[in-house]
Write a protein that binds this DNA or RNA. Structure first.
Length: 454
RNA sequence: GUGGAUAUAGCUCAACUGGUCAGAGCGCCGGUCUGUGGAACCGGAGGUUGCGGGUUCGAUCCCCGUUAUCCACCCCA
């Protein structure tokens, strides 16, 4: 007989975010929000499913992402919907549909959330994965490209992720089109000597030819025509390089960097990590000046990027993380005080809102009640292990006196604190005491996520 | 979608070529210890060896299927 757990497992390529992994996700998301908002980006949340046609028209019918990786569904009225495989198209759709340009250009938006692609799962690659992305509408200036790369970089730096920046310039639609055509023509002449993948690429996405990893193909491709940028495009590429150099941002230029989504034009870039194996792109983006118009909006230049949160979490897994550290743990001595302990904890949390110092960043202090009585020795050891600062002991003696014993786990001092009018006064007595006796910890110790155990 | 590998306790891993081999460490629970600190020692619970078939007197081990994971390709975050 099969157990329920075996029959109902999470679908392939999906996973539950819980414990340290969830902590990590929140940390990464917080860094994203910080980096984006600091540059004036506002969050947008779009639906998780859209009309399938949106992605066909933007990402491109011939790309793998829409050709074979989309989760397609039909609702009861026969509408063709798709779980979003990427974030840019929905944001552009919303930009047009909500007439966001009316607030005045440029418009800066960021998003955070799950994306879906039907792919063979691998480390750092999931069928439901998560992205943080920024989109900047309304500027064709290299300053906009520079800004977006800068936000991306700040975000990664803030997380402490080591990565290197690679850029390329695909040219304006005219350059890109011409180059693709000449590559395809070239491929045709040597078609019989190319690997099967490259033969397919020649048809569907000639630019990708340059990215082949088969050695023989690479040799052939070295004979391929070079990208020729028009005057405007090469000036654009040059000014971006200059800006990056002047800002002291390290990067490499790779003419083989081609992104798999059709809408890219102009600058494209990736941040790669050496610690990720084959899935080394941790963040990717570029310019998509034609997309807004292609989807029915006013001609509007735009740049953006998307970062893979799951991949970042993979990189940071080693360097984290401790669970929520309690500020106070209430310990009942005997079974019959457990309910009183829970009540005390509840009242203390209410009081703490107003009265306790913000001891750990932007979170409320964590106040726990132990739900069972254990030997004091073990209970104290556990509380100390969990990193609690105070322990409140509630036993026969305390109940008789109408007080509790408060112990500071750092200094080992302890006091008897009266709680007689505790509930009437909204818990001020104990809360006040704790406030008076808590000194701010050093910064490193305040971190609830990145700080290890003492 | 293609090629390859793996699957044993909550976790990390053992078990010579099929024959008491279902184990260890960590974790968890309890005791030594009736109300004061992360220790030590002792004990306990937990597995039809991913699942389903097959070969065999006998399968964790061999074969087939299946599911999941990992690696590479494709592609991408």
């Amino acid at each position: 007989m099969r157990s329920k757990a075996e029959q109902l497992k999470a679908p392939r390529g999906t996973r539950d975010l819980v414990g340290p992994l969830q902590d990590l996700f929140e940390k990464i998301e917080a860094s994203g929000r910080r980096a984006a908002e600091a540059a004036g980006y506002r969050r947008i949340s779009t639906p998780i499913f859209e009309n399938a046609a949106l992605f066909v028209r933007s990402v491109g019918e011939e790309t793998d992402v829409v050709g074979k990786e989309m989760y397609l569904l039909q609702d009861r009225k026969g509408r063709r919907l798709a779980l979003r495989p990427e974030g840019t198209a929905p944001v552009v759709r919303a930009f047009i549909e909500r007439n966001l340009a009316s607030a005045g250009l440029p418009v800066r938006l960021y998003y955070l959330g799950p994306m879906f692609r039907y792919e063979r799962p691998q480390g750092g690659r999931y069928r439901q994965f998560h992205q943080f992305g920024c989109e900047l509408f309304g500027s064709s200036s290299p300053a906009a490209d520079f800004e977006v790369v800068g936000v991306a970089r700040r975000f990664l730096e803030d997380l402490g992720v080591a990565s290197h920046l690679v850029l390329n310039h695909l040219g304006c639609p005219r350059c890109k089109e011409a180059f693709a055509r000449s590559l395809a023509d070239f491929a045709k002449t040597i078609s019989d000597r190319l690997c099967p993948d490259c033969r397919r690429r020649a048809e569907r996405n000639p630019l990708r030819l340059l990215d082949c990893k088969v050695p023989d193909c690479r040799d052939l491709h070295s004979l391929a025509p070079e990208m020729e940028l028009c005057e405007a495009c090469s000036a654009n590429a040059a000014s971006i390089k200059n800006a990056l150099r002047e800002a002291g941002i390290e990067f490499s230029w790779d003419s083989r960097l081609v992104r798999g989504l059709d809408y890219y034009t102009g600058v494209v870039f990736e941040f790669r990590s050496a610690d990720l194996g084959a899935q080394d792109a941790v963040l990717g983006g570029g310019r998509y000046d034609e997309l807004v118009e292609a989807l029915g909006g006013p001609s509007t230049p735009a740049v953006g990027f998307a970062a893979g949160i799951d991949r970042l979490a993979l990189l940071l897994e080693r360097t984290s993380s401790s669970p929520l550290r309690p500020f106070v743990v209430i310990l009942p001595m005997e079974e019959r005080q457990t309910l009183a302990a829970a009540e005390l904890a509840d009242g203390l949390r209410a009081a703490a809102r107003k009265e306790l110092p913000k001891h750990c960043s932007d979170r409320e202090p964590v106040i726990l009640s132990a739900l069972r009585a254990r030997r004091l020795k073990t209970a104290l050891a556990e509380a100390a292990e969990a990193g609690a600062r105070f322990v409140v002991i509630l036993g026969e003696n305390e109940m008789a006196r109408g007080s509790v014993t408060v112990k500071n786990l750092d200094t080992r001092e302890q006091w008897s604190v009266s709680v007689e009018d505790y509930s009437r006064a909204g818990g001020t007595n104990l809360a006040h005491f704790l406030r008076e006796h808590s000194v701010p910890r050093k910064k490193a110790e305040q971190e609830t996520i990145s700080g290890g155990k003492d």
